[in-house]
Design a protein around this nucleic acid. Structure first.
Length: 290
DNA sequence: TCCGCAGTGCGTCATAGGTC
DNA sequence: GACCTATGACGCACTGCGGA
C-alpha cells in the first residue's frame, strides 16, 4: 500500500502547508474512465514561506484561557477526559462565520476589498472558489490552488497515467514538500491501491467534502482471511479522510480568526468615527448655544 | 554554538452533531 | 441506529529567537 505519508514524513515534507493560505487539501477531480488501469499519483505541494504569517496569538490564547479556567481542581489522570466533558463543543466555524455575516461584516468586506487584495484570506477565498465543484480534465491548466492533471505515459507502464495534483502558487516549486497518494483505477472505474487486492471505488465529486479526494471501499470481501486486510484498509481510508478533514478544519479556523480580527478592526474604526462625529456635533451645539 | 522556549503545523484519536 | 463529518485535544517535529 502506498498511502504514503506517515506522520513523520508528513511533518518533514508538508511542514508549512497552508500557512500562506494555500491549503494542501486535494480537490475533487473528475477521472475519465479508461480501458486500462490508471495509476494515479497525487502530489500536493505545499509552500514553504520563509515568513510565517500567524493569525496572532489568538488561537493559543483562547485555548489556554478556557482550559485554565476549568482545570484548577482536576486530577491529572482524568484531566483530559473531564476537560473534554467540560468543554462543550462549539458550533462549527462555518456556522459561526455564517452568523458573522452581519452588516458589519459585509461593510468590513467592502472596506477591505480595495486594500487587502494581496491578503491571505483573499487568497484563501480564491482557492475556495476554484476548488468547489470544479472539474478538470487531463492536461488542463488550472488556476493557482487548484489541481493540475498531466499525462505521463512514459513514466509508468503502458496505458497507465499519472495524475499530478499541485497546489501551485507563484512561489511554489516542485521541490517543496509534497504529499503523495497513489492508487489505480480499473476499467470499471474502480480504484486499486498498489499492493492490495481489493478494488476501491472512487467516490463521486458530489459526495465528497470539499478539498478531498477519496476512495471508498467497494466490492465486499467475504473471505475471513481478508477481513484483517479489509479492516486495515478501512482504517487507512478513515485516517486519510480525517487527515484531510483536519486540514480543512484548521484552514477554516484560521479564516475564522482572521474574520474576527477584521471585525474588530472595523468596529474600532466605526467607534472612532462615531466618537469624532459626536465631538463635532457637540462643538456645533455649543457654538449655537453660545 | 548550544539550549530552552514559544509558536506553528501535522497526524491521530475521541466524540458531538448531522444525515440517511 | 449506523455512518459520516467537523472539531477539540493531544503529542510530536520543526523553526526562529534570545540568552548563556
Amino acid at each position: 500500500m502506498f498511502l504514503q505519508p506517515s506522520s513523520k514524513r508528513m511533518s518533514e515534507n508538508v511542514h508549512s502547508d497552508d500557512m500562506d493560505g494555500n491549503s494542501a487539501a486535494i480537490s475533487v477531480v473528475h477521472m475519465p474512465s479508461l480501458n486500462q488501469p490508471v495509476q494515479v499519483q497525487s502530489v500536493i505541494h505545499s509552500n514553504q514561506p520563509s515568513v510565517i504569517q500567524t493569525a496572532g496569538p489568538n488561537i493559543q490564547t483562547i485555548q489556554v484561557v478556557r482550559v485554565a479556567a476549568v482545570d484548577d481542581d482536576i486530577n491529572e489522570e482524568c484531566e483530559g477526559k473531564k476537560r473534554r466533558e467540560i468543554l462543550s463543543r462549539r458550533p462549527s466555524y462555518r456556522k459561526i462565520l455564517n452568523e458573522l455575516s452581519s452588516p458589519v461584516t459585509k461593510m468590513e468586506e467592502e472596506s477591505n476589498s480595495s486594500q487587502s487584495q494581496d491578503g491571505e484570506s483573499q487568497e484563501a477565498a480564491t482557492n475556495l472558489s476554484t476548488h468547489s465543484g470544479v472539474q478538470f480534465q487531463q492536461g488542463d491548466l488550472v488556476p493557482s490552488g487548484a489541481i493540475q492533471i498531466t499525462s505521463d505515459g512514459t513514466s509508468v507502464a503502458q496505458g497507465l497515467q499519472t495524475l499530478t495534483m499541485t497546489n501551485a502558487s507563484p512561489t511554489t516549486s516542485a521541490a517543496t514538500g509534497a504529499t503523495i497518494v497513489q492508487y489505480a483505477q480499473g476499467p470499471d472505474g474502480q480504484f486499486y491501491i498498489p499492493g492490495t487486492v481489493q478494488a476501491y471505488q472512487i467516490a463521486t465529486s458530489g459526495s465528497l467534502p470539499q478539498g478531498v479526494v477519496m476512495a471508498t471501499a467497494g466490492s465486499p470481501m467475504s473471505s475471513p482471511t481478508n477481513m484483517g486486510e479489509e479492516q486495515s484498509r478501512k482504517r487507512e481510508l478513515r485516517l486519510l479522510k480525517n487527515r484531510e478533514a483536519a486540514r480543512e478544519c484548521r484552514r477554516k479556523k484560521k479564516d475564522y480568526v482572521k474574520c474576527l480580527e477584521n471585525r474588530v478592526a472595523v468596529l474600532e474604526n466605526q467607534n472612532k468615527t462615531l466618537i469624532e462625529e459626536l465631538k463635532a456635533l457637540k462643538e456645533l451645539y455649543c457654538q449655537k448655544e453660545g
